[in-house]
Amino acid sequence: MGVDLGLKVPAVAVTDDEKVRFFGNGRENKYKKRNFRSFRKALGKKKKLNAIRNSKNKEQRWMEDKDHKVSRAIVNFAKENKISVIRLERLANIRQTTRTSRKNEKNLHTWSFYRLSQFIEYKAELEGIKVEYVNPAYTSQTCPKCSQRNKAQDRKYTCKCGFEKHRDIVGAMNIRYAPVVDGNSQSA
């Protein structure tokens, strides 16, 4: 099973028999983070430093809870479909390597992709499911049918060969068959 992690859609999973499931709500996450940010800004103007510290802890607890729920749903989906291997992207140094707009920069820097992947890994291990990491380069830009690279227009990926899907589904499909980073590849 391939799992594509992201901001707008926290996770998308695709199995070998083309079952697709979207996990989490990126809009809700963005909305809550923006509310916490504006609340802290208002408290900062009033010089209420302890209240700011407490609100940061509340935001972190809320995000951690969301990551736990998404990771549990992913592992349960894998268990329902009798999946033995979950493949995730190795998103190391993603903040330094990606180009982003000022609008998305705050979201990128508060994205807890590492914690989510760790939660998926330990919950999958408890269920006897192996987790492997793949190189994330061009996973959402490569066509799964003809292997040609195309940029997605907004959320829709279209290829010249006629293939059309949601770009996160395309990413998850490519992650499913991508070579493993550490070299211990096995067929998915």
Rank of each mutant, 00 (worst) to 15 (best):
G44R: 15
R53W: 05
D65E: 11
A13M: 15
Y114D: 10
N76V: 11
S187Y: 09
A172C: 09
K46Y: 00
A137F: 12
R102D: 02
S55Y: 10
L88G: 06
G128K: 08
R176V: 02
N50C: 00
C161R: 07
T110L: 06
L49E: 12
R102T: 01
R95S: 09
S117C: 08
I175F: 03
T15M: 10
S112I: 02
E28M: 12
L91Y: 05
V20E: 05
P10Q: 08
E64P: 00
L116T: 10
Y138P: 01
L126I: 04
K160V: 13
K145T: 12
V70L: 09
S55E: 10
A51N: 11
K30E: 07
I74K: 03
I86M: 07
Q60P: 00
L49N: 14
K30P: 00
G171W: 05
V20T: 13
S101H: 14
P10H: 06
A51S: 13
P144I: 06
Y122M: 06
N35A: 11
A124I: 06
V170W: 11
L88W: 08
D182W: 03
C146S: 07
L108I: 14
T110V: 01
T98E: 07
C143S: 04
K106W: 04
T97G: 01
E18T: 10
V70M: 11
F163V: 09
F119D: 01
L7S: 06
K103Y: 13
I169N: 04
V180C: 09
K46W: 00
T139C: 12
A188D: 02
D17M: 07
K47Y: 11
K145G: 00
K58C: 03
M1H: 04
E132K: 15
S140D: 03
I120P: 04
S117M: 13
T142W: 01
A124V: 05
K106Q: 11
A42N: 12
E125L: 10
S187G: 07
I169T: 15
N76Q: 14
S187V: 14
Y138V: 04
S71D: 02
E64N: 15
C159L: 04
C146H: 06
G2A: 03
